[in-house]
Design a protein around this nucleic acid. Structure first.
Lengths: 351, 351
DNA sequence: TTTAGCACTCAAAGATGTAGAGTGCTAAAC
DNA sequence: GTTTAGCACTCTACATCTTTGAGTGCTAAA
């Protein structure tokens, strides 16, 4: 079976029409399109061929054709025309994102809100994980009887704290020793490098000096674990429920277990990706489609952003949105970066 | 129209049956109940009267009757029998909550988990707001060029932090002055007492010394605002999605905007409360019912805990659960109180 | 005041019929 | 060889009709 140009053109036309109308499309409808110059009968023959090759299918004998997910795949990867977003749309998105001084968190939230509104689908975003930022400061502050607060600050400005109860109170000298030890071992280490073993070694080292210090190390370890954690947010999931193409039960299950998506997003390659619900296990809304891209921060991949909708979704419209937002956010974040980085080495002015 | 005892008895029976079966209940079904000794025809007359008074309604002419929300209201407030929870159930709940040394946070979480499991509805809890705890420590830590982290700790152990950028770097003396000033003005002040004016006065005071300190005061003000904020957690919301009586779209919207409930919970009176989704604007899942109660800490109302389910829910079962958990948590928290309070005055061991 | 009986109503579910869209196949035209 | 027109065929969606059963309201008797 030869896949000639005309067949591909017809496949593309079927996808476009189906996306537009939501109804199975027949040979007649295609033949009426401006850019198609063959009769309905010819199209019928080609459609039968495309069906045999697995790109189209018929819901029932006397219905038009619907793209299979192989058909969509071919369309997206090879056939789709990919227009640049017009300037006015870009400005609109810029406004929705917020200006240069918008905090990172809000930037991501705004992107999600914009995607939900513009695409009428659910948006999925992950926050920027500070993978390549380094520990810039660790403080241990006494706050009460045997009660201490650990404070962890990284070069990208994220701050975490945790209360910690020890078995004995530390005297000035012990606290000094511990702070000094931690500073030497952790300052400048990237969040991603921090490993279980590293902390085990540290526990061993400080225990030799004083056993009751080890809860502090454990606390720091937990904090760094928290920092590495990426949070996944899905907004506008109600749009999926009002979508006829999707099984409500599956949507509900997905909403309940959206965290499972997170591993999948991390594994993805860079650049824009389109995955169908049926193509993998963990993200299993049948008939659904996930369009994501990774944004960067300071040149490194930091998080993902995209859209979940029915497979029958306007890829021509959505892909440019996701692409532009990714670029813009990457740009805005890299811009911020050096302002926040400050002078991470400084442990500055304690009285 | 007279509302005699028999009519009330019949209303109660209709609610009970409807809660049990989920189907509109007819006169025949009621007449078969053990404690009802009149014929179906009599019941029909009474039901017609109850319908006219607005307590019952018919989905269509030849169907049985369903309680209106006025009917539920009357049932809950006046008719329902209210059994004491049997001891074995109490013990079961006690175990699910955890022992006396369970931290407050966990206590609340466990209560939510218990409610979800026992009622097969969503549970809603708010954390114990540190309204009456006092500021025990404020620190300002330099972390980079013109970059400072403010740390706020209260007597009940909650910790908040915030990054803050100044226009100039502070020298040792300025930082000392500021820390000292804040300590004098805020230590021992209860979180609830902190007011806008108080901070305005402080800004004025420190500005006289150095204008660039005011962002720090503003930061502290924002942190204290955050502290006063109550966090609302909804667990088991998936139960609502698998509930036929509720509109899935509304449920999903509620899950995404659950924060809106928080204001509503704060306004509630003490004691157990039952509110229907249709009875107020901000909590708008049609046909839903919210059963909440406030727990106390040290004699003062500290937070809420309860259940969200369909209006057709087993009030006889759920209300005792919520009531008992509220009492138990109030008891456990008042017990804990002095352990956690520690030594709030101490600003301890800075080198 | 309560009850039995009966005619009435209505929704849900099944049966039947029709219209229309779309197909595959064949034979003729290019 | 490829494309097209024509035609019989298939199947769904929709509308209409019928049946069934649960439940009611009303009336007259207990």
């Amino acid at each position: 079976m030869i896949v000639d140009d005309r067949k591909l053109k017809i496949l593309a036309a079927v996808v476009d029409e189906y996306v537009r109308t939501g109804e199975p499309v027949g040979s007649k409808a295609i033949s009426k399109l401006e850019h198609i110059n063959v009769s309905a009968a010819t199209i019928r023959n080609d459609m039968a061929a495309l069906e045999q090759m697995g790109y189209l299918e018929q819901p029932h004998t006397s219905a038009g054709r619907v793209p299979t997910f192989m058909g969509y795949r071919l369309y997206i990867d090879e056939l789709m025309t990919h227009p640049e977003l017009p300037d006015e749309e870009k400005h609109r998105l810029d406004e929705m994102l917020g200006g240069e001084d918008t905090p990172e968190e809000l930037l991501i939230q705004n992107a999600a809100a914009a995607l939900t509104e513009l695409t009428q689908c659910a948006a999925v975003v992950t926050n920027s994980v500070p993978r390549f930022s380094v520990i810039s400061k660790v403080e241990v502050i006494p706050t009460g009887k045997r009660l201490y607060v650990i404070l962890l600050i990284t070069s990208n400005g994220s701050i975490k704290n945790k209360a910690c109860r020890l078995e004995f109170d530390l005297n000035h000298e012990q606290l000094e020793f511990f702070t000094h030890y931690i500073e030497e071992n952790l300052n400048g280490v990237s969040v991603d490098e921090l490993s279980e073993e590293m902390f085990d070694k540290m526990v061993a080292a400080v225990s030799a000096y004083m056993i009751s210090l080890s809860p502090l190390v454990k606390g720091i370890s937990e904090l760094s674990e928290e920092m590495r954690q990426q949070e996944l947010t899905v907004t506008g999931s109600e749009k999926l429920l009002s979508c006829e193409d999707l099984d409500k039960m599956e949507v509900v299950k997905f909403i309940e277990h959206k965290d499972e998506l997170s591993g999948f997003l991390e594994d993805a390659f860079s650049g824009i990706q389109v995955k169908f619900g049926s193509e993998n296990g963990s993200f299993a809304i049948g008939n659904s489609s996930l369009i994501v891209s990774k944004y960067r921060k300071g040149g490194k991949e930091a998080g993902s952003l995209g859209v979940i909708g029915p497979m029958r979704v306007d890829y021509k419209k959505i892909i440019p949105y996701v692409e532009y937002l990714t670029q813009k956010i990457s740009y805005l974040m890299s811009d911020d970066d050096d302002i926040i980085n400050g002078s991470p080495g400084s442990t500055g002015g304690q009285p």
